[in-house]
Amino acid sequence: MFARTAWTVFRKDLTVEVRTRETLATTLFFALSAVIVFAVALVRDGRVVADAAAGILWVAIAFAGTLTLGRTFERERYTDTLRALLLAPAPRAAIYVGKLLAVVAVLLLTELMLVPLVALLFDAALLQRPGLLVALLVTGTIGFASVGTLFAAMLVRARSRDVLLPVLLYPITIPVIIAGVRGTAALAQLVPDEPMATFWVMLLAAFDTVFVTLALWTFDPLMTD
């Protein structure tokens, strides 16, 4: 029951996304715009500051993530389907899991295009250890999206939600950003620092476990009026 509900919500969100490509197209373009802004700030004499590529990548992911998160529940509110979704005779937490999976899927697709782009534009050796990089991206994205999906859900009915989402989300997900940036920077060195990257992946995995559990635990009371 739980898994089926989560899967249904996930498939529904993904179908909407595949048909409109709304989030993916806008998010990717927004991430590219952010990258350009960073290039202006961080490139001196045609060369990029050390480790900047890792930072640019993760800040672009964080910005893009905020956009994606805002859209997933905004769509439900706009079409007035949130109430129906919450009234469905299914575990509430399953709705959260479905939404989370959809956000993670969209973000991973964005990253799939963003990583080569950043590597190319800033001449960064991001792909030396693809396995570890994928581990960082997946755990980091889940961590960011697990907190973000919950906050986006609870802000749906709040005033000034567009402003409040990043205000709440960024301070709490700073460990994810630090782990992502430092882990990616460790991998992009001349000699990749594998133990360091592995440490950050483990930290992110712990973060994911704690915050997904917390979100599952608080989703129900938060979404009840």
């Binding site: 906050f151 609870m154 709040a158 005033r159 000034s160 409040l164 205000v167 709440l168 938060l222």
Partner: peptide, 22 residues
């Protein structure tokens, strides 16, 4: 959140505090 979240923001603030603690 409490100040600008509008009605129901007490719960939102509670969630932020719990997440902050963890």
């Amino acid at each position: 959140v409490r100040r600008y979240g509008g009605p129901g923001s007490d719960k939102l603030a509670a969630a932020v505090a719990i997440f902050g603690m963890f």
